[in-house]
Amino acid sequence: MDPEILLDQLPLELATQILAEWRASRATEGVPPPVKKTVDLYARNSEMLEHKYSREAQVEVGLLSPVDIVKQLFVHSKLLAQSTWNLYRHGFLHTMNAREQALVEQGLPQPSLVRALAALIVASKKPMADPRSLGAPQVSSRRPRTKSVSAADFEKLINHLATGYSTRNLRPLKAQSFAMAILATGLRPAEWARTTIRPARADEVPHGEPPEGWIALEVDTAKRKDDEPGWKRTIVVEPGLYQVHVHQHHDQLHAFLNSNPTAEDPATNYSVRCSRALKKACEELWPEARRGKAPVRVTLYTLRHQARANIAAAYGGFVAAAMMGHSPHTGENWYSGKHRANNLSMLRRVRNAGVPVPVPGMDVLLQAQEFENNPALMESAGPSDEQRDVP
């Protein structure tokens, strides 16, 4: 049934039963509550959409009923990306559920909130648009995200960031360090703010290598969903130029965070600034297509994808999945990159090309072993934060 029709025809008694069963399922043991960062995102999105729908309906904010808000969500979501629909739906489920429970505690039952929540619970799939109403096929103006970069192109890019601008312009230099740090570690941009660096122990470096100069990054893995447990992973980086930029990026980011203690999400602000510097450098280096190919457009996530390909080429898919902080199934489907983009087939050739492959810590190896021993984990993960519109 079309979700708008469902909402119009849903009896209050049935809606009350649906909501009660949904709350009971969420209260079962083992289902963790959403983290504060997710709750804040839900609140911002819900407030933004309620203001938008109120303006369109030409009513004051707060006067649009929950049923009408959800109807508008169904209408607008037909042309949204699946990930955006999921985010907005979960946001309204959280905020409306909290509002309904608070009002009931005050002795103010809210039938419209109950019906709106029940419709959101039942309509878990994104509403589909009628193809006849869309006219010509919709073509996105956004370029597909590049998932690999050749060694030659990357060398051109970081050299341009280092030498192509005034020495007083520090942003390209920060973008250069950010880019090299991601390629050397595979970390998500959002994970650097919660990452610590320490000297590596002798048992963490490859056999036969002197431990002096090696470092270990302890990463607080960014979660994709509220029901996934957080976990830490250790990534070991060899001495050399890339390690210098790992330190440099970490120091520059934390200096920025410390200088903006009251700003909202300063880490994302920093990533966006560096992403813009990367974009500008790519447009200057490759303004036009080459030999019929699209111009080179390298993003921070392009480098994460390429790091994952390098890691998989060196250690295999299970270790790569554990080092990247996602499941093997997700890795193969979304973040594989091109293993041959740098003509790399094994660890020694990667290092000889000047691009280090990080070494997995013991916790990463244990996680990889768990993936290998439990094939069900390969099917457990859905789209992650990297499918969303992030820098």
Score class of each variant (00 low, 15 high):
A267N: 13
H207P: 01
R349Y: 06
T299C: 02
E47N: 09
Q58V: 04
S124P: 00
P210C: 00
D220Y: 10
H250C: 04
P287I: 10
R349N: 09
R291C: 01
A129K: 11
L134R: 13
Q110H: 13
L170V: 07
P360M: 05
G361P: 02
M128D: 13
E47H: 12
Q72R: 14
T221F: 00
H90P: 02
R276A: 09
D226G: 13
P66C: 08
D226N: 15
G230S: 15
L173V: 08
L14P: 02
N45H: 10
P239N: 02
V59P: 03
G382A: 10
W334T: 06
V219L: 04
V359L: 02
N159V: 10
K280G: 03
N343H: 12
A27D: 15
W214L: 04
K156E: 10
L377M: 13
G208Q: 04
T221N: 08
A175Q: 05
Q306L: 05
L300D: 02
H305C: 01
P144Y: 03
Q82R: 12
D251P: 00
E105L: 14
G354I: 07
G91K: 03
A123D: 06
Q82F: 06
S166G: 06
Y165S: 04
N310G: 07
E191G: 05
M346T: 11
K78T: 04
T330K: 09
L161C: 01
V272Y: 12
P358S: 00
A255G: 15
S148T: 06
S336H: 12
V139T: 12
N258F: 13
E209H: 12
R351E: 11
R44N: 08
M180R: 13
W22R: 14
D8F: 10
Q252S: 15
R26I: 04
L87Y: 08
E13T: 15
R115P: 05
N373Y: 04
E372Y: 09
A321D: 05
Y301A: 00
H305I: 00
Q17L: 11
P391R: 00
L377Q: 06
A307E: 02
L49P: 04
Q17M: 08
A162Y: 09
N258R: 15
